Amino acid sequence: MMRVRTALGDTVGVEVRGPEGGPAALFVQGAGLERAANPTPSETARLLAERGFRAAVPDRVGRGDSSASGPIELERELAAIAAVADALGGPVALVGHSSGCALAMLGADRIPALAGLVLWEAPLWQFPEGAPAWWADVRRHIDAGDLEGAIVSYMVGMPPEWIDELRTSPQFPALVHSWIPDGTALAIVEEQSPGAFLAGLAAPVLAVVGAETFPGMAEAAAAIAASAAHGTAEELPGAWHEWEPNAMADRLARLLAGAVR
């Protein structure tokens, strides 16, 4: 476990695997629980390390080994991404999952040696009235102290068993405080368009969906790829918002090998 201090004073706990030096994958998880509750990125990091590359899976600010109390605003999460990337030392590919894709897009210009962006099922253009209106409603619940209502509003349209799983966490419902960066970032990216953040990147951008996914995800990936200077839309083995770790490790290894060349 590596512990990294951010420019804004937060301490981030990071699971790091693989050899030092060379390019690394930095996983940016979306809204949810702490790192330990979602084994997929950690398993992918382990498999990527077996392929000779470094991988880092941080706890998001306000979760798990990156404990912090109260609302977590967007700038604190972007500072954490930049600090962990800097601590890794070499070229870094940001691997966003779900709403973590929006954070990766906003954080990409803070990574001097960006090896690429891998964006798994970014939930853009998924809300009937648009992400800015959706997020404004969620934020009203948070600001009013109705944290459970905020979670229900945040997860509108998602399977109800996902909310049931969240209720088992001792951090429920305060865990929604660590979702503020996600909602803010999604609203910003959708309002300004992904191209505002991707068109100027020299690094490759991979917008990826699983073989089984929710309606609209493949179309969103195609639009994201089209907005990037070097974008592609791809499908990998995976189902219902989770990738298959071996397949993702193989794809990341190919991307990072390109950074070495």
Rank of each mutant, 00 (worst) to 15 (best):
A7Q: 14
M1Y: 12
W243T: 13
G64F: 09
A45R: 14
L255K: 01
G64Y: 01
P58G: 02
P58F: 12
L88H: 01
A207D: 11
S169Q: 02
E234W: 14
S69G: 15
A85H: 02
D86K: 15
R261E: 12
V260N: 04
E234S: 07
A115C: 03
P173N: 00
R17C: 03
R5G: 11
P245T: 05
G258S: 08
R139F: 12
M2A: 13
R76C: 00
I81T: 15
W120M: 01
T40G: 10
V152N: 02
M217E: 14
P159V: 10
V156D: 13
A196R: 13
V28A: 10
R51V: 09
G100S: 00
D59V: 06
P23M: 10
M105N: 05
T44I: 01
F172N: 03
A87Q: 07
G238K: 03
G89I: 02
A218N: 04
D137L: 14
R140P: 02
A185S: 02
V28I: 15
N246C: 14
P19H: 00
V152K: 14
A104P: 10
E50T: 03
L186H: 05
M105W: 04
D10C: 07
A68N: 09
T40A: 12
A93I: 07
V57Y: 10
E235I: 15
F214T: 05
G195V: 02
P160D: 01
G64W: 07
L198N: 05
L147T: 12
A36M: 04
E190C: 09
G22H: 03
V61T: 13
D65E: 14
A131F: 11
G100W: 00
A102D: 07
A115D: 09
V260L: 14
E244C: 10
V95L: 03
T40E: 06
E190G: 00
P132F: 06
R261A: 13
A82D: 11
A218G: 14
P112N: 03
A144E: 08
P58A: 08
G238N: 10
W162I: 15
D59G: 11
G149A: 00
P215G: 07
V92P: 06
L252W: 02
Y154R: 06
N246S: 14
V84D: 04
E20T: 14
A37N: 04
E73W: 13
A207T: 00
R254A: 15
E129S: 14
C101G: 13
D10W: 07
R5V: 12
